Computed example of a mutant assay.
Amino acid sequence: MNKEVKVQELGVKDYKETWDYQEAIFKEIVDLKIKNRREDTALATPNYLLFVEHPHVYTLGKSGVMSNLLLSEAQLTEKGAAFYKINRGGDITYHGPGQIVGYPILDLENFFTDIHKYLRLLEEMIILTLADYGLKSERSPGETGVWLDVGTPFARKICAMGVRASRWVTMHGFALNVNADLGYFDNIIPCGIRGKAVTSLNVELGISKVDEAEVKEKLLKHFKTLFEAKLITL
């Protein structure tokens, strides 16, 4: 079981370009697993955690419905936003500047074979990171992701999640609003959930800008502990 995770900072990168990069890594790991089984070998499968910031983009998961996008093609162009139907779970979400997007591409057979546990640990990583900033966040029953003030009229989502897994290899991941322009969420029904707001870390802390590098350091600290991983920065 290889618990080394290669951490790669991609900076600002186009969504489709990043998706293709994820797919290439995903295929490399799956192909190696198939080779191991076919040839009865035990070559270690690699694990990755990619950090990226995307230009404005809306993505629709496999279980999503187009009506949750409230913009026409012309309006998307006007707002400088792209749109993609993609192969993760979940409905529609937004990515853009001021948001930390993390894509763990892990062979879960190196850790544990439980997708439910995997999602809960990703949520816990976010919850612990927000606690470092004095915020109490939590899960919302039946709604993947991380929220504040669950069960009240003020419930608001701060981190969206959507993953894909095949042969216990994961891709896609989480999007944590740190310094996000929340106006872009007005153009969708986020995750297909009506009547609930979206928030960002800087808004919750009442400051203009949060140090995103510091947030990533905290995320990595908790990821390392929760997954019992050894992190290697590329």
Score class of each variant (00 low, 15 high):
Lys3Gln: 13
Glu4Thr: 12
Lys6Tyr: 04
Val7Ser: 08
Glu9Ala: 10
Leu10Phe: 08
Gly11His: 02
Val12Asp: 02
Lys13Arg: 14
Tyr15Gln: 04
Glu17Leu: 13
Trp19Cys: 11
Asp20His: 04
Ile29Met: 07
Glu39Met: 07
Asp40Ser: 10
Leu43Gln: 05
Thr45Asp: 03
Leu49Ser: 06
Pro55Met: 05
Val57His: 10
Tyr58Trp: 05
Gly64Tyr: 01
Asn68Gln: 08
Phe83Thr: 01
Lys85Ile: 07
Gly89Val: 02
Asp91Lys: 08
Tyr94Arg: 06
Gly96Tyr: 07
Gln99Trp: 08
Gln99Ala: 12
Ile100Ala: 09
Tyr103Phe: 15
Pro104Tyr: 11
Leu106Lys: 01
Asn110Leu: 02
Phe111His: 08
Ile115Phe: 12
Lys117Cys: 14
Tyr118Glu: 03
Arg120Asn: 11
Leu121Gly: 07
Leu122His: 05
Leu130Asp: 13
Asp132Lys: 13
Tyr133Thr: 06
Lys136Tyr: 06
Glu138Lys: 05
Glu138His: 10
Arg139Glu: 10
Glu143Leu: 12
Glu143Ser: 15
Glu143Tyr: 15
Val146Tyr: 03
Asp149Ser: 14
Ile158Cys: 01
Met161Ala: 11
Gly162Trp: 00
Val163Thr: 02
Arg164His: 09
Arg164Lys: 03
Trp168Pro: 00
Gly173Phe: 13
Asn177Cys: 02
Asn177Tyr: 02
Asn179His: 09
Asp181Ala: 01
Phe185Ala: 02
Ile189Tyr: 12
Gly192Ala: 13
Gly192Ser: 10
Ala197Cys: 00
Leu201Trp: 10
Leu205Tyr: 09
Ile207Phe: 14
Val210Lys: 09
Val210Arg: 01
Phe223Leu: 10
Thr225Asp: 15
Leu231Cys: 07
